[in-house]
Design a protein around this nucleic acid. Structure first.
Lengths: 224, 224
DNA sequence: GTCATCATGTAAGCCGTTACATGATTGC
DNA sequence: GCAATCATGTAACGGCTTACATGATGAC
């Protein structure tokens, strides 16, 4: 779950742990305030498995303050330059993480799996939808349709509960609201599915298995 | 979390583990399919802490037919009778749990606390609302208002995200839908809050601290 | 000089899961 | 006889949390 979010984020650039947390909060919304006690171990695991590489940006040895502007080599300075615009600012020691080819594979594997990643279906779906642009059109559609099935099941359960109910007013209100919310989400999903299908009939070249990342034509229409 | 659900359920009668799971699923809806690996240890913990007592009903020794004294179980007993027809259908060995005074205290403590029980705010709120009839009117109102605050915060975050967003169409759709859902829940909550306030101005006797369980007058209006 | 923020980690624990293990009873 | 359901538990693990521990930098 968290791994998927991190890998997805690292597809857009390289970041250090502290910054990853901020972006997860501000951009993704999910993992509102993921704790460091969860984030750093996750990064370590990803590094250990070769999905990301970590580059330590240290302010230098404690004995020498260092001028720092370009002291660590040209390659790194260029990478850093696009982060803050200027070379100054990289004072604190930090580890910058970059996704590897292995990591991109893992990302797609997690994104494209049948089962929800983690235990929370709603969260898993939201996370995957946020990265749906990295999926092949069919995989995208089946993601939406799997979610539709889940919700249909929930709606049926809610309605059964509402029907057989012997509830007080609070519980009844809860059930009713839950039903409405599920209906609302279902109709939203239906719109998404409809729009996906139209995209696919418009450009029907992607009928082979798993053409992830190569979907340049179809992707163009779905980008912001 | 699970403890609270169990205690709440046991206020309505006495059940064994397997049955508790079913009722949690069918009646409460939350904990859709709580696992036994979670349920039985929870029951053991509750028993160890004196919140419930367990009575072993083995097939050989019919300890007590448990007439239940008809207070809360009058209708429930009739429902249970359909299982095997008579009271002596309890063949399988099973442990029937009953809540104690200590357990009722714990229940109120968990229900009336400021902080969410467990880590999932939405679930915690739903669970508490399902047992809101056991809360004093003010506690009930403050439960609703705390939830309102949470949602207001989320809505603000969603809107900030939508405003500053540089998203692809999927993520944008996700943010929009999340915003709508939150707005929907907020207006639902506002209706609940409004109706609570009217109940309270109608019968304003409960202004003291924590008159849990004694709220017979106000409760009457909210029961099914 | 001290406070907020940036930055990284470890340790302990909570709350749930799946998988494993066992056995009785009912229905076909 | 065999499968489904009823019934109870244990073990191992997953994924997150809080609390603990450390330290640099910038703002006032």
């Amino acid at each position: 779950m968290l791994e998927l979010a991190i890998l997805g984020l690292l597809q857009e650039g390289e970041f250090h742990g502290y910054e990853i947390r901020k972006r997860l909060r501000d951009e993704l919304g999910l993992f509102a305030n993921i704790s460091f006690g969860s984030l750093y171990p996750a990064l370590s695991r990803l590094e250990a498995s070769g999905a990301v590489t970590a580059t330590e940006l240290s302010p230098g040895t404690p004995t020498a303050p260092l001028p720092l502007t370009g002291s660590l080599g040209g390659e790194r300075a260029a990478l850093r330059a696009r982060r803050t615009g200027t070379a100054r600012g990289t004072k604190r020691s930090r580890k910058v993480y970059r996704i590897t080819d292995r990591g991109r594979e893992l990302f797609v594997e997690l994104l494209d799996a049948e089962e929800p990643v983690g235990t929370d279906e709603a969260r898993s779906f939201s996370l995957r939808l946020a990265f749906a642009r990295h999926l092949a059109p069919q995989a995208r559609l089946s993601l939406l349709e799997r979610r539709r099935e889940q919700l249909a099941g929930r709606l049926a359960a809610d309605r059964a509960r509402a029907a057989g109910g012997d509830f007080d007013s609070y519980t009844r209100s809860l059930v009713e609201h839950s039903t409405e919310t599920t209906e609302h989400e279902l109709s939203w999903l239906d719109r998404l599915i409809e729009s996906e299908k139209q995209k696919q009939t418009a450009s029907p070249e992607h009928t082979g298995p798993r053409t992830l990342g190569a979907a340049s034509t179809a992707a163009k229409g779905s980008e912001s």
